[in-house]
Each structure stands twice: as structure tokens, then as C-alpha cells.
């Protein structure tokens, strides 16, 4: 029992507090950086340059801002913007779902990555793999949705022609 308490103190409490201290060193400057970026609307400036990425994802330019915000600040902020856009009607159903798929796989890349890097993970592999997976799955979903949409549209047209 005494042995268990000692392991609990050493391996459980002290080790996790040390881990948290390590995370603190990196997390605090990053969170301040994120707030500064929000304050100076830096993401608005970045999203103006996101056109090539959007073209690859077959998304319209209106999708840039929610996508970049979700990537930088997290899914809650991204989703909140998406709800706004959906209400205004500047993005259609297909685009909204695609943004949802991309962001659900790849969001809050700064914060999530930093926490794992503090534990010893490779940041480059971490970000690139997440981005790649989000890209592949979004693109596949786009092909799937577009095919289904095409079928739905072609079917009644066929009947019309005859």
C-alpha cells in the first residue's frame, strides 16, 4: 500500500504536473499570439490569399474565412461563422458540408499541435498529415456529393427529352 502511494505520487501527480509545466511554457505564448492575430484581423488577410487551396477543394471564395478561422482558432469559432454564412445564404448546402468535413478532421491546428509537441511529437508530420487527411476526405466527399447530385438532375431530364 505504501509502495502504491509512492508510485501514485511520483508517477501520477509529480510526472503529470511536470508535463503540464512543459505544456505551459509553449501554450501561453501561443494563446497570446492567437488573441493578437484575432485582434489585428490577421486571418482575414490570410483568407484573401487562400484561393489556390479553395480551388483544389472545389469551394467558392466565400468559404475562405470560416475555413481559415476554424483551422486557426478551432471548430467552435469556425462552426459559428458557418452558421452565420448559412443563414445569409452565401454558401450552399454542398459547400457547407464540405467545410464541415474538412474542419472536423483538421481544426485548431496551432493549439492541438503545440500541446503534443510539448510531449515530444514531430510538429511538421503532425500538421501535414492532418491537413492531408482533411484534404483527401473532403475531396472524396465532394466527388461523391457531386455524382449523386448529377444523377438526381440527369434522371428527370432524360424523361423530358423523350
Amino acid at each position: 500500500m505504501k509502495e502504491l502511494l509512492q508510485i501514485l505520487l511520483e508517477e501520477g501527480i509529480i510526472k503529470s504536473l511536470l508535463g503540464i509545466a512543459q505544456i505551459t511554457l509553449i501554450l501561453v505564448p501561443v494563446l497570446i499570439g492567437i488573441e493578437l492575430a484575432r485582434h489585428f484581423n490577421i486571418l482575414e488577410k490570410i483568407s484573401a490569399k487562400a484561393q489556390p487551396l479553395l480551388r483544389l477543394l472545389t469551394l467558392p471564395k466565400e468559404a475562405a474565412f470560416p475555413l481559415i478561422v476554424g483551422l486557426g482558432f478551432g471548430i467552435v469559432y469556425g462552426a459559428a461563422l458557418i452558421i452565420d454564412y448559412a443563414r445569409e445564404g452565401s454558401l450552399n448546402k454542398r459547400d457547407l458540408v464540405l467545410i464541415g468535413i474538412f474542419l472536423s478532421i483538421c481544426h485548431a491546428v496551432v493549439e492541438d499541435t503545440i500541446i503534443f509537441v510539448a510531449l515530444g511529437a514531430n510538429p511538421l508530420i503532425l500538421i501535414l498529415t492532418r491537413f492531408l487527411m482533411a484534404f483527401i476526405f473532403t475531396r472524396l466527399a465532394a466527388v461523391f456529393i457531386d455524382l449523386r447530385y448529377k444523377k438526381e438532375r440527369l434522371h428527370p431530364q432524360k424523361n423530358h427529352a423523350k
Binding site: I75, I83, L96, G100, S104
Partner: peptide, 16 residues
């Protein structure tokens, strides 16, 4: 949260 984009929860769950 993602349901607000029109992405259904089970689909998002399994996709991820």
C-alpha cells in the same frame, strides 16, 4: 457542433 454545417453526426464520427 459539426451538425450545424449539415454534416450528420454519425457520418462525421466514422469519417474522423
Amino acid at each position: 457542433i459539426c451538425r450545424h454545417t449539415g454534416l450528420r453526426a454519425p457520418i462525421s464520427f466514422f469519417l474522423r
